[in-house]
């Protein structure tokens, strides 16, 4: 169990709804769901295999205090952010944001499913972008392509070859970015300081140990 998970379990005991309301982004909307199911009916992913629970069921599980099932669920990681549910919800519940809020919180607690593709992309993107303050697209693509080993990476790269060449010709992709860390923000230290401050503020707001 991670430190934060231990800390949160101790703080909220059995009140998982309260934990979500205070700790997950937009979690205070969970109580407003009236279980009509319009969100599930609107979801373009149709809950293929990976959706263990549709959104309104997740909300009911939160109210029922099913902490481990919710946090370990792969459901919210499958949201494609189309915002259909958010637009259609008769209670104006920001379902898309809650899905991301839940996913992020589960990750922070170390309870999110391992090797989840969406999670891998998010993590890679975050690390890539925060390192220099700019996204290094070549490196980002490389990391993603070679996620499952060398052979697989080469295969994927070959498949996307013509697209990459087109981007290079149109000066949308600079292959030189791959060497020497690519272009950077002018004030990397400043960026890092801002991120650290944001983290501090969030911890303060949510009553977490910094």
């Amino acid at each position: 169990m991670s430190d934060m998970n231990q800390q949160m379990t101790a703080r909220y005991k059995n009140n998982f709804l309260k934990e979500i309301e205070e700790q997950a982004e937009m979690g205070d909307w969970v109580k407003m769901c009236m279980q009509c199911g319009v969100c599930s009916g609107s979801c373009p992913t149709n809950f293929h295999s990976a959706w263990d629970h549709p959104p309104q069921e997740l909300f009911m599980m939160i109210r029922a205090g099913k902490r481990d099932e919710v946090l370990e669920s792969g459901s919210m990681w499958n949201c494609v952010s189309c915002y259909n549910c958010y637009v259609r919800c008769p209670r104006k519940v920001p379902i898309t944001h809650i899905m991301h809020g839940l996913a992020e919180y589960a990750y922070r607690l170390g309870k999110a499913p391992k090797q989840q593709p969406t999670q891998f992309l998010s993590k890679t993107f975050w690390d890539n972008a925060t390192k220099t303050g700019r996204v290094n697209e070549v490196k980002l693509t490389q990391t993603l392509y070679f996620k499952n080993g060398l052979m697989d990476g080469i295969k994927q790269a070959m498949a996307m070859q013509s697209v990459a060449l087109g981007l290079v010709k149109a000066k949308r992709l600079n292959p030189m970015e791959a060497v020497g860390g690519g272009h950077k923000c002018k004030d990397i230290k400043g960026i890092h300081a801002m991120l650290a401050k944001a983290r501090e503020l969030e911890a303060q707001r949510k009553g977490r140990a910094a």
């Binding site: 709804l17 109580k31 407003m32 009236m34 279980q35 009911m60 109210r63 029922a64 209670r91």
Partner: peptide, 14 residues
């Protein structure tokens, strides 16, 4: 009234 109740944190379970 129902919405206000949910807002006040009353839990509704079917």
């Amino acid at each position: 009234f129902y919405r206000a109740a949910q807002n006040k944190g009353i839990v509704f379970r079917k």
